[in-house]
Amino acid sequence: MISGAYLGLFQAPADYQQGDSFRIIYVHVPAAWLSLMVYVIMAVAAAIGMIWRMKMAFVVAICSAPLGAVFTALALITGAIWGKPIWGTWWTWDARLTSELILFFLYFGVMATYHAFDDRKTAEKAMAMLCIVGVVIVPIIHYSVEWWSSLHQGATIFAEGGPRMPADMLTPLLLMIGGFMFFYGYALFITCQTMVLKNERKSRWVREVISRNHSR
C-alpha cells in the first residue's frame, strides 16, 4: 500500500519537461493541503469524542497534532524557499502566510494543552475544545488569497472553471498529494496504536495481544 504511494512520489519528479523553481510545488502544496486536512480531521475527531464519548476519537485527534504541525512547518519552510527566488523575500506578513503560521501555533497549542493536564480525561476534553474552536482558521487560510490582496498566488486546483494547470503537471501533483495522505494515514495508524497500548496497558486485551504476538 505504502510502496504504491511512494512509487507515485518518486516517479512524479521524473516526468516533467521544464526544470524550474515551480517543482517546489510538488512538496509545498501537498504539505499545505495536508496541514489543513489534518486539522479538519482533528476537529471532527474531537467533536466525535465529545459527543459520543469515544476514546479512540481523542487518540486520533491528539496523534494527528504533531503530524499536522510537521506538515504546516514544511508548508511554511518550502514556501519561504520558494518565495525567495520568486518574490524576492523569504517572508512577508501577508494573509496566507500569517494565517498558516497561526495554524502552526494552534497545533502546538493543542499538544501543549493535552500535556498540561495530569488527568487524561480532562486533558482530552480541553484539547478537543481547542481543536473544535480552532477549526475556523481552516476556511480563513483557504480563502485568504481571495479575501485579501496577497503576494501568494490564487488557488490552482480548486479554481473556478477547473484546475489551472496542464495535465502533465497536475497528475504528479495529485499523486504527491495522494502519497502525503497515505503517509499521514500510515503514520497516524502507528502513533495511534502506540498511544492506545500506552493508555490501555492495564486492560486484559492489551495483555493478551502483546503476549500472543510475542509467542508467535
Binding site: 526544470g19 523553481s21 517546489i24
Partner: peptide, 17 residues
C-alpha cells in the same frame, strides 16, 4: 541544475522527504 533553482528545489525536496 533545475534551471538555476537547484538550491531552492533540492532543499525543499530534501527537507520534506
Amino acid at each position: 541544475h533545475m534551471g538555476g533553482y537547484a538550491f531552492h528545489v533540492w532543499t525543499s525536496w530534501a527537507l520534506s522527504m
